[in-house]
Design a protein around this nucleic acid. Structure first.
Lengths: 203, 203, 203, 203
DNA sequence: TATGAATGAGCATTCATTCAT
DNA sequence: AATGAATGAATGCTCATTCAT
């Protein structure tokens, strides 16, 4: 039983790797089998079809993200620090298990009924937590909470397209830069010239 | 000759629609043929293979983006306003031709050699322009220009996943919110309580 | 157009041959392709799936049977001779196109919705014609028309399991024996001993 | 040992049910396993492969048919009554164990070497008994014994395709109708009109 | 005996692509 | 310029069968 569950984890890891590498549509069952490794037929002990593999990968990833984030936010009261925690938690997970997060970001749209709706519940839950963290900063007439939340997700979900391990900063440093940018803006620490021009040229 | 070029545009429009709908890997030549509409065999008068269609769509899209952005930036000197122009130009194009931008965002990674390298030149050119627009705000020891640029692209490239026509703001309003967020941060106009707490936790 | 329809006939002939040889379930698409001959993929220009091939074969066969039988019965008034015509018409078709009739007899039960119901209409039509031919011989309290009709079909549909070309009688002679058996019984011309015993045990 | 043999009977019952329902080719080992019920792997304690299951089902069925028929014929001297016994014995078995007889009728042709030849011995034995029962009615120049025997088998082997429990007569009544039809013909008791016409066209 | 994970061959079907028309 | 029949490779998936437990 334990052996079976352990093997399932290996299988899902292989799925995530294959999906991340070639995309859900581009990854064949044989690609997954090669990544596990296992025979193509044998994979069907762990799913009833390919869609279910995508579902299981996404489900597992969202559960991890949610659990890590709620744990990470626990005991942190400062609103800004809570925002920083969102970035840090998500980016740390991305750097630990990039395949899962790449799959989640790129292939979630390939998930069909009835799996899609089940994952969307988790997605909304995760978005909800983040939105709640951002809510204290929302002001009527200002940037809408929705736009801010989606912008935050855009920032972190885009990371996998450009991040280079070694060359780019680690999870903490990157999270710090990104949360600073998100909360205070890129112009916050801009040199005097630019800042004054910005102020003076307002229209 | 003009007729041929006009037909080619229709063909590329069909490709973009099919790619945006099902993804490059998920869209079959017959899907494209249905979207044009034209017979599957007939499509091969306009390409030598499916990859080339993806290349043509991406190439056309990047050229449009670059041309619109350079035109848009022309004559604007204020650094902040230039940033705003980046958002506005990109978002306007997305709302005008969503299929092309969705294809660019989601399927560029499916482009293989030797087309990929040719498109990457345009991509770098576009990123370069944007990076130059952001450069005046960069400060040593602060948020890196690279992280800022990539964050900006994350924000705008993620829009297609959540934007709902009618419900969400138009290109101008959205660009204003996003450039404000990007330049001044979400906390800029936050209520006193949140701001003070933030201030207290500043480091 | 004519070429396409002609090719379709060849394809259906190949289907019938493959189905007759290995059974519907046992015949693979590649078996059919080999029997036509044509590539497996190419077959899908003539059907949307394997079931549809079975449908087309059965449909064509029933139409032929019905047309031949109605033509054959035309102008024949004598009830016994009409019964004989049923046997003759069916057996002649069997000897001309055994593959189709074997498929009809053995594989009709493999036809699924929604094709099954469409073929069942033809089947009932054919059964109806035969039943009407037998009706004049039915008597209340005697052998039921239903049992008689089904027995007749049992007799002729079983032929393909034992008939050996060359060794067994031709269509006409076989039909004569079978219709005699069906109408007058095997004991009709039995030797005195058997007949008298039979008569004595009548109840 | 007794437990094993009992279990083997259950396994063969499951095979017969699965084969009758989906056909030999259409029934998977897992279908059989579900019908027993037992795990797929466990079935291989009772056979060396799927063909052997078909063999065992057919073998058992033919042995039953032969034993029941010889027992049934024992002590019956009247030729007609012996024919009736053939119908009654076979139909009774069909109604008691339809799955086995359906398998025998539909799937015997799927049995391959070397099992086929072994079963064919039993088949010929059963056919031989029936043929011997019919022999007293054969007359030179009349309906051949072979055609008569095969027609009888056609009649009874077709029953499973149309018989509806409840709606159609029981084994005895059906056997009576069928043996009457077989021995005396459907026209035997036909109304005067039909009979006279038949008589007039006699040749 | 019985299980169920595992395999490799085979399945029906779809694919990108070619080519005669 | 355009069609659609045709192909061979590849797809997701099921199969009969094996074997460690």
């Amino acid at each position: 039983m334990a052996g079976f569950d352990q093997r399932r984890e290996q299988v899902l890891d292989g799925c995530a790797r294959a999906f991340a590498l070639k995309g859900y549509q581009g990854a064949s069952i044989r690609d997954i089998a090669r990544a596990v490794p296992m025979s193509a037929g044998g994979l069907y002990h762990y799913c009833s079809n390919k869609q279910e593999f995508l579902y299981q990968v996404c489900d597992r990833a969202f559960h991890s993200l949610i659990e890590r984030l709620t744990t990470g936010l626990d005991g942190i009261d400062d609103p800004s620090e809570r925002v920083h925690t969102v970035f840090k938690s998500h980016l740390a997970y991305f750097l630990e298990r990039p395949d899962e997060l790449i799959t989640l970001t790129e292939d979630l749209s390939s998930l069909e009924a009835p799996w899609a709706s089940r994952v969307r519940v988790l997605q909304r839950q995760y978005y909800g937590i983040v939105s709640d963290v951002l809510a204290p900063f929302a002001v009527p007439g200002g940037i809408s909470l929705r736009v801010a939340t989606m912008s935050l997700f855009g920032m972190i979900n885009w990371v996998h397209t450009w991040y280079r391990r070694g060359a780019d900063p680690g999870a903490d440093a990157l999270a710090r830069q990104m949360s600073d940018l998100f909360l205070s803006g890129f112009a916050a620490a801009a040199p005097e010239t630019a800042r004054s021009v910005q102020g003076g040229s307002e229209r």
